[in-house]
Design a protein around this nucleic acid. Structure first.
Lengths: 205, 205
DNA sequence: AATTGTGAATTGATTCACAGCT
DNA sequence: AGCTGTGAATCAATTCACAATT
């Protein structure tokens, strides 16, 4: 595995997009695709796609293009999609419970193994166990969980993060509208709905 | 208003973050803040904060720092927070209904004026009217709506987008896991949950 | 003395242009 | 002939370093 550190994060994001397009090609029994065609589908330039892929070796055939199955499988390896990764969700409010019901994660290689809340309640249509947050530490350690989805109010976010990082969480998808302070080795991706809307509103005249 | 086109979008994102930090300072009755302190709270370098703010004029006082109220008000103007912006939401599935219940938009200056779905149903706790999608065009035109939140399945997303753009929508917050094709003058911000998780999973070892 | 605002330097990402395979 | 892979060139964003200001 090459040093992960010097591959741009944006390239990794795009890999996920390419993967989705490849999936669609597979469904349509297409077995070869050119960088131009795939780039078009993904909404990027073909040179960028080739640069992105080149980080992971020579994946195409000159004069021909990329083999859809092979490329998809390589990207799957890179993104760690090929083994089901357990994830916990913390904070079962509106957004948290919607994500639990959403369920689309599994087919992308993620299993929400458990959810935690201060006051756990059973939710209709949700099979994921919802546990009191006091059990989070034991669960993370016992199941060796490395990823968490954070949907608690901003006021609790930092203290919950401190705890989960202590317990072994290495990657956090944060929906709380706040800046999280984490150690070097922990990765945070934040999705801030208000910020996204505000950003759009700047661009309308 | 300076030409919007050459201010980096990332700067605009950060403006929203700064604004949140300023809000907190206001609550604590702090009236002046240095770029170093505000940058720390926002998780960026102080030079970056100063560069970001400099796009909008000389907002600080050398030797002293920034006036919290004045800066917050300027950023509010830039982001268009100072007038309530009507937004529609299209696709009242799991995620869509969660966002309707979430309600945190209003205090950020957005009002979800209506929601649309193929099969509208009344939702408990939700006061926003949920209308059949056939009424979307008339609603957008009558109320001069410019922003939309898109939470429909990927398979419908492009056709819904085509319609709303025709009706006058200029900015779209897209949660559908697909690449949208829109005209030049329309801005799209995409939030793709699976992509965010995959991205994280790449970074854990 | 402290802190902003900014040109210059640096670092990073994208795109170009074409050599190298099949 | 067609299409990938990649070094070089360009473009964009960040950080540095310090002059300007209170």
């Amino acid at each position: 595995m090459p040093a992960k550190i010097d591959i741009p994060r944006k390239s990794i994001y795009r890999l996920s997009i390419y993967q989705r397009c490849l999936q669609r090609l597979r469904e349509n029994r297409v077995d070869t695709v050119s960088s131009a065609a795939l780039a078009k589908a993904a909404g990027v330039k073909s040179t960028q796609l080739r640069k992105d892929l080149a980080y992971f070796g020579q994946l195409g055939t000159r004069g021909l293009g990329y083999n859809v199955d092979a490329l998809s499988s390589t990207i799957g390896d890179v993104l760690g999609q090929n083994k089901l990764q357990p994830v916990i969700l913390v904070g079962v409010g509106n957004l948290g419970s919607a994500l639990l019901r959403y369920g689309g994660f599994r087919k992308e290689g993620f299993e929400v193994a458990a959810a935690f809340d201060l006051q756990p309640r059973k939710l209709p249509q949700v099979t994921v166990p919802i546990l009191p947050i006091t059990e989070m530490e034991a669960f993370i350690r016992r199941n060796n969980v490395k990823m968490a989805i954070l949907t608690v109010p901003a006021s609790n976010a930092q203290s919950v993060v401190n705890e989960m990082v202590r317990d072994g969480i290495q990657a956090i998808l944060n929906f709380s509208p706040t800046v999280l302070d984490v150690p070097e080795h922990v990765v945070v991706n934040s999705v801030d709905l208000a910020v996204e809307l505000e950003n759009l509103s700047y661009f309308i005249r």
